Simulated assay, not measured.
Amino acid sequence: MTLRDRFTVVGRPTDCHVFEGDGTRPISEENMRVRYVPERVRFPEDVGRWRREIEEEQARKEAAGEPHLWNNPRFAVERLAIARTDIAEDPVATLTLRDADYYDFLTTSVNLERAREDGQTLREQYIDGRDPLGAPAFMFCSFGVNVAVETGRDHKMLFSHRSSRVAGPNSSKWNSSANEGLARDHDLSADGRVNLHAVARRALREELAVQGSDAVDLELLGFGLDVRNNQWAAFFRAVLTDLTEEDLRARWSRGVEDKWEHDGHAFVPADPASVLRFLLDEPAERWTPCAPALFYLALVRAAVRARDGSPEGRFEVEAIERRVVREREDGA
């Protein structure tokens, strides 16, 4: 993965590779297909030893009454294939998943720079300068659903700041409005189905108290890969048709299922200039790798819809981005 392949916004390269989607054409729910293979990922022998080290360390901490990491069942990404319909050329995505768990994810994510027996690190072998889809499934034991939320009545974009109490490399950073990692306990139905749109709705409910009775215009914009932490992500845009910032804050004051995941929120006018200025105002290191890409695609989608589906909306956002960067450079 070269620097050229990493998403760049307001003049900043990020650690996000946008694999599919430019904001102009969403992937419909019926065209998002998930194939589940009920088989565990398999590690090479030397990497498998790293996993056993993690398992033993967490078992020791639990036995000693120390804080430890819960090994929840997850999915590994085996394949992500994109096609187009015959006539309209609408995008069709097929995501193939197999069984994994949180310790499987830690095995690779915390050891990306660790040399294997042949002397190569996992990053050298599978990420840098490589096609991410060429890596084996054990490298991708985490898949996140990320949602950019806009309030429909007062037109605000919502940014969420992850709490320092959240485990992992993205704590204490600005992130998507709501996000959830795919989990077998929550997202695998009895008949072996996984629905990404349903996961996005779960994220809205658990983190933002957006209920099933609320009118939500939900679209899947595409997919990205966090090349810093080696995690796949789905990008969604959600417009809360009948809600305002005041409505959401009032709900949060009455309790949210996963309130502890965020320690702050920012509501920003949803026009491109205001959102891009907010992205630029916050230092690059205070953002999770893929959040800037998600919000940019959401801006493009809003502009395209405002033009009745014309892809020219994308170029409007690009022009505003250039202006915002110039303004900042002139004022520096």
Rank of each mutant, 00 (worst) to 15 (best):
A88D: 08
P292V: 11
W232E: 02
R328D: 11
G255R: 03
V275C: 13
V18S: 01
P283Y: 05
A291P: 04
R305I: 05
E245P: 08
E53Y: 09
D308H: 15
Q211W: 07
H155A: 14
R305T: 09
A293Q: 01
V145M: 09
W260Q: 11
R277A: 13
R237M: 04
A93F: 07
G21C: 00
H68Q: 08
S213W: 02
P289N: 04
V149Q: 07
N146A: 11
E45S: 13
G192H: 04
V145F: 07
P289F: 05
L188G: 07
N230C: 10
K156Q: 15
L208N: 12
L196F: 06
V325P: 14
V317A: 01
D22N: 15
E261G: 00
D242M: 06
D86Q: 10
V194Q: 04
D242I: 03
V77L: 14
E261I: 06
V194R: 06
R205N: 14
V10W: 09
L299R: 11
P283A: 09
V194L: 05
E124K: 06
A148V: 01
P283H: 09
N230A: 14
S172L: 04
P26L: 05
V166H: 03
H265K: 01
V47T: 09
V194D: 04
R201L: 10
T151P: 01
V199H: 03
Q120K: 15
E113I: 01
V325C: 08
W287V: 08
E89L: 10
W232K: 08
P136Y: 01
P136H: 01
L133W: 13
I127K: 03
G134A: 14
L95E: 02
D214Q: 02
N170R: 12
V210S: 02
Q120D: 05
E318Y: 12
F143W: 09
N146W: 00
V10S: 08
R98K: 13
E117D: 14
N71R: 15
R6G: 02
R114E: 13
T24N: 00
V37E: 15
A148L: 02
N111L: 03
L299V: 13
N229V: 03
H68G: 10
M139H: 14
T94V: 10
E45F: 08
A332P: 00
W232V: 02
R25Q: 14
S164Q: 13
T244H: 08
L188N: 06
I87R: 15
G313R: 00
E246I: 06
V9Y: 08
S176L: 05
S163E: 01
P67G: 06
G224P: 01
H197C: 03
E45C: 05
R162T: 13
F43C: 10
T96H: 08
G23M: 00
N71I: 03
P67T: 08
D263Y: 06
T108N: 00
P272D: 07
P269R: 09
D154I: 12
Y102Q: 06
A238G: 08
T151M: 12
D187V: 05
A284R: 12
Q125V: 00
C290I: 08
G21E: 00
M139W: 09
D131T: 03
D128A: 11
R162P: 03
T94E: 13
T14N: 05
V300N: 00
G331N: 13
L218D: 07
